[in-house]
Simulated scan of single mutants.
Amino acid sequence: MTEWSHYQMELEALRSIYEGDECFKEISPVSFQFRVGDLEDRKAFILDVKWPDTYPETAPHICLDAFFNNRISAETKQLILSKLEEQVEANLGSAMMYTLFEWAKENQEALMESHRPVVTAVTLTSNTEVTAPSAAKKREKKEQLTKAQKRRMINRTDNKGELPRGWNWVDVIKQLSRTGGKDDD
């Protein structure tokens, strides 16, 4: 059997199994995304899988680089990948995507056991400002400002030191409800 027919058979099988399943996404005939867990699930993650030319004799490329996975620590990602590699080794030479996806679903809890959402710098900044406003004010004089500080400065004033026009979105909504939008003809 040629490589292409292996690809084709597995691809057809995946399409029929996951038809209408929002967890499965075919990016190209050799590239897929599979979400393990619901969108609202804090322990959900997305697997990006790409078949090399010699698949299934060669392992598929699996990565967790999707933006959706940004809140997962590097250690947890490494654990997930190493556990999946063990499964790939055990299934080399045969169609394995369904097996891998289902294994990941069944073992989601164990794979994400040590998961603690990654805390962003913006969150840390806002916490320190509550406790030490004087330190935050000093920091603003430096050229390197955090996104949160820049956002606050922009929200406060325009370059003349005045509040910019339309800064209060509630007024914009009131104005639109009074005058009607462009479409109201």
Rank of each mutant, 00 (worst) to 15 (best):
S16T: 03
S16F: 04
S16V: 02
I17R: 08
I17C: 02
Y18E: 06
Y18L: 05
E19C: 05
E22C: 01
F24R: 04
F24Q: 05
E26G: 05
I27N: 13
P29L: 05
S31A: 02
S31E: 05
F32S: 06
Q33C: 03
Q33V: 02
Q33P: 00
Q33R: 07
F34H: 14
V36K: 07
V36F: 07
V36T: 10
G37N: 15
G37L: 10
D38P: 01
L39R: 09
L39P: 06
R42Y: 11
R42K: 11
R42V: 14
K43N: 14
A44I: 10
A44G: 12
F45S: 01
I46H: 05
I46M: 11
D48A: 07
D48Y: 10
V49A: 11
V49S: 09
K50Y: 03
K50W: 02
W51I: 00
P52L: 11
D53Y: 05
D53V: 04
Y55M: 04
T58R: 07
A59K: 04
P60N: 03
P60L: 01
I62P: 00
C63A: 11
D65P: 01
A66H: 04
N69Y: 14
N69P: 08
N70V: 06
R71N: 15
I72N: 09
I72R: 09
I72H: 12
S73R: 03
A74I: 14
A74D: 15
E75F: 12
Q78L: 08
L79F: 12
I80E: 00
I80A: 00
L81M: 14
S82W: 08
K83E: 15
K83R: 14
K83S: 15
E85T: 13
Q87V: 15
V88G: 00
V88M: 00
A90F: 03
A90D: 13
L92F: 08
G93D: 02
S94T: 04
A95M: 04
A95W: 06
M97N: 14
M97G: 12
Y98A: 02
T99P: 09
T99E: 09
T99D: 10
L100P: 02
F101L: 01
W103V: 04
A104T: 09
K105F: 02
E106I: 04
N107P: 07
S114H: 15
S114L: 14
H115D: 11
H115T: 03
H115E: 07
H115V: 03
R116F: 12
R116Q: 14
V118R: 03
V119P: 00
A121C: 02
T123K: 15
T123A: 11
L124K: 09
L124E: 11
S126V: 13
T128R: 09
E129T: 06
V130F: 03
T131V: 14
A132I: 04
A132F: 13
A132P: 01
P133F: 08
P133R: 08
P133G: 06
S134C: 07
A135N: 14
